[in-house]
């Protein structure tokens, strides 16, 4: 078995001569190098970077107390607050959670300091008629009710303030549901622009680019390589391909010159391959 292999090997050597081993080695090397070269910068792959997708989870955003706004929920809590003394009037209770009774309080707070006055008036009780007595009682009831409303309003305000503070503290701890989300979006972190560096550069250069639709002829396209330092300064640029339309190409040169200094720093020195075209401007007669 082994001898047959040897024979075969010798035959091959005889056929391909003395350089057989070298050829074999070169062949193996080539197979190894080619895939490496394919992924090297010598063969750039023209894949347009997908625009960043920001996923904001609005539906599941954490809410401290989802039931807080519902009337039945508030009324349930109010029951313990409301002292059971004025039980005879069970109906006014569902009303307090609504801030409608506000118009009345301004009228009633005044009587509060007057309360001492009201009581002295009670002295001439014997002379006061029954009807007057009833009205006095009514007024007292109203004053009590208004005082209770005031208390409950204050309690509600305090509770809302506490909830707001808690929600704020919690929102600071929320983590992005997207693991590789761009900075400055869901979790509130990131730079002032609030987007990824390449998105910012894209926006910045686009803003510097002026071209009238009346200058655009055909479907011009150009590719430019731009290298920025971490300070946002343009180190160098090179047209990889030009459109051949002088108006279009010159407008790009102007945009590049205007973009020689970005308005903010980059996380690191970066190289951008920018593809300019007029896809979004083509709808013209």
């Amino acid at each position: 078995m082994e001898s047959s292999r040897k024979k075969r090997w010798q035959q091959l050597q005889a056929v391909f001569g003395p350089g057989f081993k070298q050829m074999l080695l070169v062949s193996v090397l080539l197979h190894f190098i080619l895939p490496i070269l394919y992924y090297s910068p010598f063969f750039p792959q023209r894949e347009i970077e997908k625009p960043p997708v920001y996923r904001v989870n609005l539906v599941n955003k954490i809410v401290k107390n989802p039931q807080a706004g519902r009337p039945e929920a508030t009324s349930v809590k109010k029951k313990p607050v409301v002292k059971k003394k004025p039980k005879p009037k069970p109906k006014p209770k569902p009303i307090p959670p609504k801030p409608k009774p506000k118009p009345k309080p301004p009228v009633k707070p005044k009587p509060v300091p007057v309360t001492p006055k009201v009581e002295p008036k009670v002295q001439p009780k014997p002379t006061v008629s029954k009807a007057q007595n009833n009205t006095l009682k009514q007024r007292l009831e109203q004053m009590r009710a208004s005082q209770k409303k005031k208390d409950s309003d204050q309690a509600r305000k305090d509770r809302i303030a506490a909830l707001k503070a808690a929600a704020l503290a919690e929102s600071r701890q929320i983590e992005s549901p997207v693991t590789d989300a761009p900075v400055g979006m869901v979790d509130g972190s990131g730079d002032e622009a609030g987007v990824s560096a390449s998105a910012h550069v894209q926006e910045f250069i686009q803003q510097q680019w002026n071209l009238s639709k009346y200058q655009a002829v055909g479907n011009p396209e150009a590719e430019v390589k731009m290298f920025y330092s971490a300070d946002g300064a343009l180190i160098h640029y090179k047209f990889i391909t030009k459109s051949g339309n002088s108006a279009f190409d010159e407008s790009l040169t102007r945009a590049i010159v205007k973009s020689k200094q970005l308005d903010q720093k980059l996380p690191e020195a970066m190289e951008f391959h920018i593809f300019f075209n007029l896809k979004d401007m083509l709808d013209r007669p």
Partner: peptide, 28 residues
Amino acid sequence: FVLIMLYVLCSTSYAARIEISAPGEQTI
């Protein structure tokens, strides 16, 4: 040779690809 190739591959910085499909201003 293999090491050199690997070095070349690793040393090339990442080039972000951007497409700008309309000018920011459409008048001069």
